[in-house]
Simulated assay, not measured.
Amino acid sequence: MAFDQPSLKGRALRLLSGREHSRSELERKLARFEEEPGSLALALDDLQAKGFISEQRVVESVLNRRAGKLGAQRIQQELQAKGLDPHVVMQAVAELRSTELVRAHAVWVKKFGTPAQDVTEAARQMRFLAARGFSGDVIRRVVKAADRADDDSASLDA
C-alpha cells in the first residue's frame, strides 16, 4: 500500500463531506480502490457504526434538494438508484404524494405562469411536468386549473 494514497475510509469520508451517500453508492465509487478483498466492507461497516453513513439522512438530503422541483415518481427513481432499502423509499414517496399537487403547481408557475393558449402549448406544459416525474392526474389538474383560472378572470372582466 502506498502511503501517499488516501485509505478507503479517507476516500469515503471525503465523498461524505460533499453530500450524503448511501452505502451502495460508496461501494460502487470505491470498489476500484480496494486492494484486499473485504477491506471496503470493513471500512464501510466502521463508518456506518459511527453514524457517518445513514440511509435516513440520504433520503432527507434528496427530498430537501429535489422535492421542490420534481415529482414523486422521479424522486423514487433517484432513491432507488442510490440502492436504498425499498421500504424506506416507499415511505418517503408516500409522504411526497400528499404534497404533489402543490409542488407541481409551483413548478408550473415558475416555468410558465400563464395558461396555455392552445392545445399544443397545453401538451408542452404537460410534457414538461411529466418529465419532472409528476403523476398524470396531478399534471391534468394543474394545467386544467390554470385554464379555468384564465376563463374565470375573462368572465369577470366581461
Rank of each mutant, 00 (worst) to 15 (best):
M1L: 09
Q5T: 10
S7P: 03
S7Q: 12
L8Y: 03
L8V: 01
L8E: 01
R11L: 15
A12I: 03
A12K: 00
R14V: 00
S17E: 01
S17Q: 02
G18N: 03
G18H: 00
R19L: 02
E20V: 00
R23D: 01
R23P: 00
S24T: 13
L26Y: 02
R28N: 04
K29P: 02
L30V: 03
L30A: 01
L30R: 04
L30I: 07
R32T: 10
F33G: 09
F33V: 08
E35M: 06
P37L: 05
G38I: 09
S39N: 06
S39Y: 08
L40Q: 03
A43T: 01
A43P: 00
L44Q: 01
D45I: 04
L47I: 05
Q48P: 06
A49P: 01
K50Y: 09
G51T: 04
F52C: 04
I53H: 00
S54I: 04
E55V: 06
E55S: 12
R57V: 06
V59P: 02
V59E: 01
V59D: 03
V59I: 13
E60K: 11
S61I: 06
V62N: 02
R66W: 13
R66A: 14
A67S: 15
G68M: 00
K69W: 09
K69Y: 14
L70Q: 04
L70Y: 15
G71N: 09
G71A: 05
A72Q: 03
A72R: 00
R74T: 07
R74V: 03
Q76I: 07
Q77E: 15
L79F: 08
Q80F: 11
K82P: 01
G83S: 03
D85H: 12
D85A: 11
D85V: 03
D85K: 10
P86Y: 06
H87F: 09
V88Q: 09
M90H: 12
M90C: 08
Q91D: 15
Q91T: 15
Q91K: 15
A94G: 07
A94L: 08
E95M: 13
E95K: 15
S98N: 10
T99H: 10
T99I: 05
T99A: 10
E100V: 08
L101I: 05
R103A: 11
R103L: 09
A106I: 07
V107A: 10
W108F: 12
W108E: 11
V109I: 14
V109E: 15
V109R: 13
F112W: 15
P115S: 12
D118T: 13
D118I: 13
E121P: 07
E121A: 15
A122G: 02
A123T: 13
Q125R: 05
L129A: 10
A130T: 11
A131H: 11
R132V: 07
G133I: 00
G133Y: 00
G133A: 11
G133K: 00
F134R: 02
F134K: 01
S135L: 06
D137S: 10
D137Y: 05
V138C: 13
V138S: 09
I139S: 00
I139W: 02
V142H: 01
V143C: 07
A145N: 14
A145E: 10
A145F: 07
A145C: 09
A146N: 02
D147W: 07
A149L: 12
D151E: 10
D152A: 12
S153C: 11
A154I: 07
L156N: 09
D157N: 14
